[in-house]
């Protein structure tokens, strides 16, 4: 029983972290129809921003999370305007090649600059509570609560704000969105920035709950794609549900059996979901 509580909390926090990365990826895909392979690199860079801010310079933790989100938002927006905008409307392979190139450049420079040793970020919250024999750390609870709040905030932003409506409009039909007066180019960099910032915040979670290395982006991208495909391309709710499923599998199976089995099982689950729902749990049919 106590084991399950502990695995449950670990699964929830992992799942939320995966969901944040995947929501960012699905937002970028949904709005721009580009496959951003370097999304995991944004996750990695976001973690290192917080690492240098908090662990190296000793500046306040939560401010560091905000700084990381803002810096990576800016980076995402600049990447969109400088690299991806000129390729807009061209064959998807061009942007694919650019994002793959970014993976190599960013993770390679990361290893040179940050070093290849594993690093951790001390957290702002300490202590925990014993509940029926399970030790539940406050750190995990606070971080989970913050990520839930962020996901809800993003969801409300997309539902309620005019810019959020515009993002959804551009995702659904860019030409008609332009006919309403929406500057689609502006929506593109906002969505790219927002999506990247979500990954950065997930990176901060990763550094705090687990550990970070400059090469961790690649696996994050793979997991994000698994989740997005499972949840349905372009769906925020799908990314959240998919993230939770993957987080739970990772937590429970890694603790009870092994990490390799967890990875295999996640793929089996995705296969099964795609057999019965080819466009994912909450996917629309993209033409």
């Amino acid at each position: 029983m106590s084991d399950f509580l502990q695995m449950g909390l670990t699964g929830v926090s992992l799942g939320l972290m995966y969901a944040l990365i995947a929501i960012g990826l699905t937002l970028i895909f949904g709005v721009m129809r580009i496959i951003q392979y370097a999304h995991g690199e944004m996750f990695m860079l976001g973690a290192f921003v917080l690492y240098y801010w908090h662990a190296e310079m000793g500046l306040p933790y939560w401010a560091g999370v905000a700084v990381s989100a803002v810096v990576i938002f800016g980076l995402g927006a600049v990447l969109q305007m400088v690299l991806f905008k000129p390729l807009h409307g061209k064959n998807i392979l061009y942007s694919l090649a650019v994002s793959l190139g970014l993976v190599l450049i960013i993770s390679g420079s990361g290893q040179l600059i940050f070093g290849t040793t594993t690093k951790g970020i001390p957290s702002a919250v300490s202590g925990g509570v014993l509940l029926g024999g399970a030790y539940l750390s406050y750190e995990r609870m606070v971080i989970s609560a913050v990520s839930i709040a962020l996901i809800v905030a993003l969801w409300l932003f997309l539902r309620r704000s005019v810019t959020g409506l515009a993002i959804r409009a551009v995702a659904e039909d860019p030409d008609t969105a332009a006919l309403q007066g929406i500057r689609t180019g502006r929506i593109h960099w906002i969505a790219f920035g927002l999506g990247s910032a979500m990954a950065a915040i997930a990176g901060c979670m990763m550094g705090t709950l687990l550990s970070i290395v400059p090469t961790m982006g690649f696996l994050a991208t793979i997991k994000a794609f698994m989740i997005v495909i499972m949840g349905g391309l372009g769906s925020v709710v799908g990314a959240l549900v998919g993230g939770m499923i993957l987080g739970m599998i990772d937590s429970v199976v890694t603790t009870t059996i092994s990490g390799d089995i967890a990875l295999i099982l996640s793929f089996v689950v995705i296969f099964l979901i795609l057999v019965f729902r080819p466009s994912g749990l909450f996917g629309q049919n993209w033409d």
Partner: peptide
């Protein structure tokens, strides 16, 4: 129309 969005949201976007 933005088919996935509500009637009201479509109208709102007209006055973007």
């Amino acid at each position: 129309l933005f088919k996935l969005m509500t009637v009201r949201e479509n109208l709102r976007l007209g006055a973007y």
